[in-house]
Design a protein around this nucleic acid. Sequence first.
DNA 1: AAAGCCGTCTCCAACGTTACAGGTTCATTG
DNA 2: CAATGAACCTGTAACGTTGGAGACGGCTTT
Lengths: 354, 354
Amino acid sequence: MDIRTVADRANVSIATVSRTINRIPSVNPKMAKRVWDAIRELGYFPNTQARALGSGRSGILGLVVSDITNPFFPELIQGFEDVAVKSGYEILVSSTNYDPARMEMCIRRMLERKAEGVAVMTFGIDQPSIDQLVQRNVPLVFVDVGPDRPGISLLKVNYHRGIRQGVQHLAALGHRNIAFISGPLDQHSAQERIDAFSQSLAECGIPLTKEWLIEGDHTLEGGIRGMEQILAGSSRPSAIMCSNDMTAVGVLHKAYKAGLRIPQDLSVIGFDDIHMARAVIPPLTSVQMSRIDLASAAVNALRAHAESKSPHREYPIETQLVVRESTGFPPGTMQHLQRKVAAQPSRSARLVAR
Amino acid sequence: MDIRTVADRANVSIATVSRTINRIPSVNPKMAKRVWDAIRELGYFPNTQARALGSGRSGILGLVVSDITNPFFPELIQGFEDVAVKSGYEILVSSTNYDPARMEMCIRRMLERKAEGVAVMTFGIDQPSIDQLVQRNVPLVFVDVGPDRPGISLLKVNYHRGIRQGVQHLAALGHRNIAFISGPLDQHSAQERIDAFSQSLAECGIPLTKEWLIEGDHTLEGGIRGMEQILAGSSRPSAIMCSNDMTAVGVLHKAYKAGLRIPQDLSVIGFDDIHMARAVIPPLTSVQMSRIDLASAAVNALRAHAESKSPHREYPIETQLVVRESTGFPPGTMQHLQRKVAAQPSRSARLVAR
DNA sequence: AAAGCCGTCTCCAACGTTACAGGTTCATTG
DNA sequence: CAATGAACCTGTAACGTTGGAGACGGCTTT
């Protein structure tokens, strides 16, 4: 069944059917009704492939993520899909698994399917494979950093704000010994988060301890390894900031295994504020980076390019601390002793809660 | 740039280029080399849309899931993608969010893109919208149950085995009061899990308490609500089985909030064994349902139909208990008292561990 | 030497749609 | 009443690929 079948049944030409479907205003409402009736009776719907071939427009927006298994990404994908579908696009998701070969495949997939724009949300970009997209003038969106060319937009995440809030929160509680478990150092966003952390530390007059700057990999296992490294160290921090929530969950797990109580013995802060952060034990204090904002900024940037209507080069994304129960006074302080009496004094230190 | 450009550069006809790309054996190796060289020099790759239109084959396998935000599904998607790509297919994922209207959209997407097969992994099927696919002879795979027609395969999950192992594990520890938080009752798989649970209970001579059969919804929040309901009940079970891991995480969270220690005061068993189950606190005893098995059975079934080579009607999927630390002796038993002395006696009760 | 037959190539008609260039109809106008 | 033009319709050439129908050498067979 194709457009011809519909045309025959409605007694119009296929061109009219096409124009009806595409809601071109110059079609007589009477005819349009006949066409729609025929469409309904036949259960017809257009063939996307043929449509794309004819029009030269695929109506596809690509999304490349690094690890679909990290809960942050599904939440992002869902937001991206919602916004894209509302704008009349379909989406094509691909996961690189931090593997350059797979990244290559992903890019190729996007190219073959003629995606009209691709959001690369891997937080670490493999330049050579991206070049293929740049050369073919596919609109692109990156996080944080990317080549400065027309057709490319950047989602500028304000890591500094949320991370500073986190460090200040810890400092206010009395922490002076704070570790940081980062993402892979070759990822630009990991570097940015570290910078924000050390800068915030400086602002609070807290010295940076090299030993406590640990490279993780944004996975559960990375968090566990990071925590092991901290436990094996010569001295122990009273608080740990993590570059993402999965890392924090790993830290929480390892701390539990080691018999450390959170937050009495150790405070932990995550980053991303994934949905599950509120349900882990104890509920995780985390720097929120809105998936919805990220997703809609990405789609909007891509649309702006694809439909050529004044795209911006940069889209700011805010971050913000959400205080829950994984942070408290450092062990051995007055406040800590008080804590044993009061039910949950850390509540009073809460900035944002739910 | 198109196939013609390549043909010109290699000094052959477009048909030869097409046949070279598709590795048809009847092309002279000399020519093939010329063609491949031209392809490489130009950076050419075929247009998937045109290809699909010409050949009538889209090379797309669809995957419909109910909630991409539930960690079980991303793990499934990844497996599905791996297997599909290895078999030369691309995948198209869509998430219904338990919303019939979105389900409709998903189906339509699959139809428009001419998917050669669709795996519906929603664990609860909305008959009317599925019919469109059935009518158009799209090969389908369902979980547990589906219409008995050619072109449709079923993934028969052996819920009974894993759940019985769970109940037996609890019974062996001495539990007699076991609650069950199910999935949405209108989902067939939820029903099957309940059946397996009550049957296993009967096998162990444990009475079923109606009050402790609670309807959840496979989300974190559902687990929290389920636990609230249990806490509000007239009597309290010593163990809870959950229909999936997210529910169990919710239970763990609420138990923590209520000041209950796991497993000393309450044992909890999940279902799915998501990756994070090993990292929650305490590590969750769970019934494992292999995503890899599920994914590869789904792809194989779809391929068998699409390439018409002896498809099976049913593909069995096994489940198995993985014992971790969220289960222990019920409170107030001799063993429980012993437990206070020994470091981690529950270890001895472990069937499978890691 | 004619016939037959491979192996390998080219030509060209689909595939289902869009979009543009013309048509046709019909009311309005001088 | 013919001319005008707006409104709306139809015909058809793309779009990039596939795949079947032949064509064309060069080889073997009779």
